[in-house]
Simulated assay, not measured.
Amino acid sequence: MTLSILLLCCAGTAIVGALTGEPEPTRTGTAAEQPQQPILAAPGEPTEQAPTQEESPTDTPSTVSSSAPSSVAPSPPSAAAVPVVQVTTVTEKATIRYGERTVKDSSLAEGKRVVRTKGVNGVRTMTYEVTTTDGVRTAKKLVKSAVTKQPVTQVVAVGTKKPQSSKCDPNYSGCVPIASDVDCAGGSGNGPAYVRGPIRVIGDDIYDLDRDGDGIACD
């Protein structure tokens, strides 16, 4: 079809030149060197158009680069940790040491000690208010103190009785006075000391009181 149109165009040009008396231009060179005439499409035939820039497909994705730094919103500062404060009540007990009191007792030998009343320790109860901050004790305040058990004072008796020197001779069981001479009472002896029997001789019969030697004097 294109060749037919081209031939028609060339023939028309030759006819117009012949009528006007203008010689037909001589064509030299190859067909590739001749200027190409626009190709006219016949009525009803679709024409081929070069794709426009908007319709031209592209295989390379468009990448938009930005040199502007991205803006990051600063995070708000974290809130300061609030300390945990706790107040509790604590009860403690303390021992009250009993006291001691001494009394004189003339029935006991001098220097001898006897516990008459046994001492008992008392108890004191104390209440504290304890403050802790984050688990660490920061304060301790005494709010109450009371004696919940009274101590009992220990009583000790101390003897004051003076020891007495013996006036009896140790050679006899029963009291035979110590003297320059001792005779049996009611006898013929002249003393100066006398003793009533019976008296058992447990040592030496220094006063010759056991005349029959049976171990019993003044019988």
Results as ranks from 00 to 15, higher is better:
Ser4Arg: 10
Gly12Ile: 10
Ile15Cys: 09
Val16Gly: 14
Gly17Cys: 15
Leu19Asp: 10
Pro23Glu: 13
Arg27Cys: 14
Glu33Lys: 07
Pro35Ile: 03
Pro38Val: 11
Glu48Trp: 15
Glu48Thr: 15
Thr52His: 02
Gln53Thr: 14
Glu55Arg: 04
Thr60Ala: 09
Ser66Cys: 09
Val72Asp: 06
Ala73Cys: 08
Ser75Arg: 07
Pro76Ser: 07
Pro76Gly: 08
Ser78Lys: 12
Pro83His: 02
Val84Leu: 12
Val84Pro: 08
Gln86Arg: 12
Gln86Met: 07
Thr89Gln: 13
Thr95Ile: 13
Ile96Trp: 00
Thr102Val: 05
Leu108Met: 02
Glu110Asn: 14
Glu110Arg: 15
Val115His: 01
Thr117Ser: 03
Val120Leu: 05
Arg124Gln: 04
Arg124Asn: 03
Arg124Thr: 06
Thr127Glu: 02
Val130Glu: 08
Val130Ser: 03
Thr131Arg: 01
Thr132Lys: 11
Gly135Trp: 00
Thr138Cys: 01
Lys140Ser: 04
Lys140His: 00
Ser145Trp: 00
Thr148Leu: 00
Gln150Arg: 15
Gln150Trp: 04
Val155Trp: 01
Ala157Gly: 06
Ala157Tyr: 02
Thr160Asn: 01
Tyr172Ile: 05
Gly174Arg: 10
Gly174Thr: 06
Ala179Pro: 09
Ala179Thr: 09
Ser180Gly: 15
Cys184Trp: 10
Ala185Phe: 14
Gly186Leu: 03
Gly187Trp: 06
Gly191Gln: 06
Arg196Phe: 04
Ile199His: 10
Arg200Gly: 04
Val201Gly: 06
Ile202Ser: 10
Asp204Met: 09
Asp208Lys: 14
Asp210Ala: 02
Asp212Trp: 07
